[in-house]
Every structure is written in C-alpha cells, then in structure tokens.
Design a protein around this nucleic acid. Structure first.
Lengths: 193, 193
DNA sequence: ATAATTATGGACTGATCAATCAATAATGGA
DNA sequence: TCCATTATTGATTGATCAGTCCATAATTAT
C-alpha cells in the first residue's frame, strides 16, 4: 500500500529511552534523539509525534519493563523475605555504567514533580502495582513468622518503595555495588521477626 | 569609588535558588533567572558569572542551609532516637507548595548524575557531615538502650540518608504530609531496641 | 569639578532549539 | 503500468538560548 519503514520502531524507541534516561527531558535535544535512534528527523516526527510524545512513550515503555522485573524478583522466591531481598538487591545492576543511570522514573519525578498532570496520572497507575504485591508478600511473611508481626504491612510496603527510590538516587550519584548491596540487606533485616 | 549595586545580592541569590530548585538547571533560562531575581541581564553576569556559576553558588548555599537544619533537628533532643525522628519528620515542610519542591540536592543528583566532577566533589564534601553526626547519635542510642544494639551504626546511618532521599523524591512527586510523617515514624521504629 | 571605577539597561550576536515544508523514493493495489 | 499512500532526505522556519557590547548612570577619591 505504501512505502515501508526502513528502521525498527522498537529498536529506535529503546535508543530514545537510553538518551532520555541518561540526560532527562529538558537536556535532550531532538538532534540527540535523531542521532541515537539512527533515523531522519521527519521519520522521528512521523513515527513518534513530537519530543514530548516520544518522551511519554519512552517513559511508559521503560516503566512497564522495569516494573515487570521488580515483580518477577519479588515473587520468584518461595520465601517472602527472600523476595523482598531480591527486589532490593537486584534493583541496581552490577554493570557500573548502567547502574549510574539510576531509574528513569525517579528522574522523571525529580525533573517534573507535580507540574505535569499526564506524568502524575501515569505514576498513579504504576505505583500501586508493586505496592499491592509488596503488601501481599509482607502479609505472607508475617504468617510464616519470617517478618515482624507487629509492623503495618501497608507502611512497610511504602517504606520499601521509598528505599528503592533512595537506592536509585544513590546509584545515579555514583554509589558502588557493595554499598547498595549492604544497604538492601540491612533494610531486609529490619523487617525480620 | 564606584557606583554601588542597587539590589541585594543575597536576596537575588535566594530567588535564583528558588528557580533552580523548582525547575532544575537545564529547564531554567537566564531570562527566568533575571526576572525572578529582579535584576538586569548585565547585573546577573557581572555579579554571578554565568548560568553555571550561579547554579553552583545557588546549590552550595542551599546545601549549607539545608544541612544546618538537618543537624539542628538531629542533635537538639536529648534522646538520640528523638533526634533521628525529628530529622526525618521535619525533613519535609508542612506547606504543600514548599514540600512539593523536594530537595534541590536530590534534584541535582538526578539531573547530573556523575557527569559533572565539580558537583560530585561538592556532594562528597557535604554528605559526610550528616553521616558522621548520624553515626554518633546511633551509637549514643545503642549505649542508652534505645536503639537495637545488634545493628551496624554505619549501615544504619546510610539507610537513614537513603530514606531521606526517598522521602524527598516522594514529596516532589506529590506525597501528602501524613504519608511522609507515618513513613518517618515507621523507619524510626525499625531502629528501636 | 574631574577622573576612575563599577552598575545598569537595551540592543545585539551567533548558536541551538523544536518543528515544518517540499521534493523524492518506495511500496501494494487497481 | 500507474495511482494512492507512506517514508525519507535536506533545506528551512521562527523562537529561544546563553552570553556580549556599548552607551549611560552613579558613586568615591582627588
């Protein structure tokens, strides 16, 4: 029917994610994107709309992948406490260059705060997914006697999410693997019965 | 000897801090700064150098004030655990507009990561100031029997700092006062003997 | 009063920004 | 084959960017 696209949309999007993740929205130019994505300017606008739309799609895609990793690590082990440990320990990659990027979602919160309603609503859809699973595993752990029975599962789940955010910022600030690892294990210990 | 400056340098700097704090470095234009500071363009360049130098001075000034507040809250109460509680509870202001700004230091880490050596070295000078005091108060608390004797003071101090970062990001993301308050108290409880 | 010095305001610079236009190329269906 | 449709390329737009130049104003020392 029409001329087919010469590039791989998914691959180009992944490259765009990489740029936004590393530099944030404001510091990224459309030329940075074009170069990293390996496509022409018009192709970018035809395929992804404008810079903002591309950012939204990049962030959404990043969040989906990131979240599914979190949930996989949290739920894989039989022991709930091991799940929480794996969630936190596996949060920051061993590869320093990757780890130093931190989390694109955290970066987005820091860059935009509450000024962009579309971003706020995107977060509100994603955050509860992990929170719910966390509350579940904490309850499980309490039933098994692994986790301190006296703590409120909701508050503990929120604290774990806050800790994840803190770890990501530390990682972006250059924290090394050992430090983050130690911190994750320390936090898990604080939940133990 | 020469014509005196017509504006208050400190007041202008405070206004610049406000803009950078709210919008970050990249999204702030020199015109934003000029307007908020209420001075002419040439006055800005004469007095503060360029945009980057102004940012560095703004961040340095912010950090100093912020850090002295942290240390004051941490050390004021007789009870070490109360000090840690006040540090965390008092971290995020009651006023929503102010709280939603989060922390300019956290914003700087998220925006620049480890890409700017001058910022990295600025952080390395500031972070240990609080860490040292925290370790001290944790040791105190353990000696008094308030804080769990089995935990490593260094790791606990780092976890508290990570928690502070997480709270600030949550605040920037729109978290309400109650949620942050609850979280702070929950964290303190996790250190108790 | 005059000279030296610094502050201020407005015009201006070249670079870069996001985004569009217009011309050409490639595809499948008629 | 030829038409409708979409992709690609390169030139181009007007806006905004950080930063400078220059003329004028205000101050103190002499």
């Amino acid at each position: 029917m029409a001329r087919p696209r010469e590039f791989d949309r998914e691959a180009a999007l992944q490259n765009a994610i990489g740029v936004f993740w590393s530099k944030g929205f404001a510091a990224t130019s459309t030329d940075d994107l074009r170069k990293a994505m390996g496509i022409g300017r018009q192709s970018l606008y035809n395929t992804f709309g404008d810079k903002r739309q591309l950012y939204l799609e990049a962030l959404r895609t990043y969040q989906r992948k990131s979240m599914s990793g979190h949930i996989a690590r949290l739920t894989a082990p039989e022991s709930p406490l091991d799940g929480i440990r794996d969630l936190l320990v596996g949060l920051t990659p061993e590869d320093a260059a990757l780890r130093n990027l931190g989390c694109m979602g955290v970066g987005s919160v820091c860059e935009f705060g509450v000024t962009d309603p579309e971003l706020v609503s995107m977060r509100q859809k994603i955050a509860p997914l992990l929170a719910g699973r966390l509350v579940g595993r904490i309850g499980e752990g309490q039933a098994k006697g692994e986790i301190d029975d006296s703590l409120d599962p909701e508050a503990a789940a929120t604290l774990i999410q806050i800790t994840m955010t803190g770890l990501q910022v530390a990682a972006r600030g250059g924290a090394d693997d050992d430090e983050l690892h130690t911190l994750a294990l320390f936090m898990v210990d604080r939940l133990r019965a």
